[in-house]
Design a protein around this nucleic acid. Structure first.
Lengths: 218, 218
DNA sequence: TGATTTTTATACTGTTCCGCATAATATAAG
DNA sequence: CTTATATTATGCGGAACAGTATAAAAATCA
């Protein structure tokens, strides 16, 4: 057994790979999205496999076969959340624009993510996981720490660039400002979960931006 | 039945009230503290009545009789947490001192609270409850909102006073600064739960204070 | 058509859970 | 000593839970 399997280098995305047995009745991507929705709504402990089974349309053995046990499914859901959040943010972090506008757009997207949800605002999954599973589960904790630090770093890069472009005084410390920017993300995530209305959260964001980069030009 | 009971105006704190039946084998205050410890460690859903029973030394019927069901016990635990946190903070908010020192002391106490715990840092119970139970439970949510706003207001009062004393420029907005100060509390609470070491949290606090009230005098 | 493979569907196991019903125990009052 | 009261101790009941074993179904391959 030198080769792991006989996959013939399988083309990246063959449309119909002609799989052998009974075809799947579910789409893994969609099912994982449903699982994520549930976990974001109720958290790990309050979400049962029956709930997940009902939401995904997969019965428990299929769930188990596709994603592993509940914890593994949670981890995969969280990875998916991170990927989605990153995708929603990356162009804002990448494109050239004034720091003030960049921050405003980041927070607008964050609020969209945190306030979405049919059964109430779902908040930030990183923040919620930090509060619950991260303490006792090293693997999950590592992912959460990575999520926190990824945001810190992205913000820091923004502030560093803004300082180079003269939008911020030379004395401004990008790392410190980034921590404040992250703190603002965290506080609106928490407040969103307590159903603080969007208007109030936007006011908090506006105030924070004013302090971080100075009040808007008149 | 006009009078609800025959309590004879019961003296505030008679040392031995000569209660009638079998004496209690537990002290409600201590038991509630143990319950709070558990809830802070594991959250509502992951804490079972058996866990609570073992931790408090009370069997389930006694628990039920003393505090009501699990949800009521959680609410009472949270009220207790808030009372303790308020007690730990109140003298710092009350006494006269420079804004910088006041903030430093508040955050030091907050870190003590968030990092304590034998089985890992317990974080901020308000933040954790906001992330979990507050979404779906209106009564708990009201308490959480009150907790968030209480902190906002206390910070705002500090900044208002500091501005009056000339420690801050007249242009400083106490409400905005208070939201940033609360955001800093929230971010360290979350990061504490992810086991970010105290040193790093203290660095975040220091940076935030510098931005809010200006760098320390040399 | 029949064998093989992969997935779905059903159902089971043993545990844990919450809340309560009942009985035993310990005190005060009469 | 007897009665009333308040608590503890035991344990029951039915539901929910996570995970898996087994059987049925749906596809490909020969």
């Amino acid at each position: 057994m030198v080769q792991k399997s006989k996959k013939p280098a399988a083309k990246p995305d063959a449309p119909a790979p002609k799989r052998r047995g009974r075809p799947r009745a579910y789409q893994p991507e969609i099912a994982l999205g449903k699982a994520l929705d549930l976990f974001r709504k109720d958290g790990f402990a309050a979400t049962s496999l029956d709930d997940l089974s009902a939401a995904t349309g997969m019965n428990r053995p299929s769930l188990y076969g596709a994603f592993g046990d509940k914890r593994e499914l949670y981890i995969k859901s969280y990875a998916r959340y991170r990927a989605e959040a990153r995708a929603a943010m990356q162009e804002i972090f990448r494109d050239e624009m004034p720091i003030r506008k960049r921050l405003a757009r980041i927070y607008a997207v964050a609020l969209d993510i945190y306030l979405s949800g049919e059964a109430g605002p779902r908040g930030c999954f990183t923040v919620m996981t930090a509060g619950s599973e991260a303490v006792a589960d090293p693997e999950i904790r590592a992912m959460v720490l990575e999520g926190l630090s990824e945001l810190d770093k992205a913000f820091a890069a923004c502030f560093r660039l803004a300082r180079e472009k003269g939008e911020l005084p030379a004395s401004a410390d990008p790392v410190v400002l980034a921590q404040l920017a992250s703190a603002t993300v965290h506080t609106i995530a928490i407040r969103a979960r307590a159903r603080v209305p969007r208007k109030e959260l936007e006011a908090i964001v506006k105030g924070a931006i004013d302090v971080m980069v100075g009040p808007a030009a008149p």
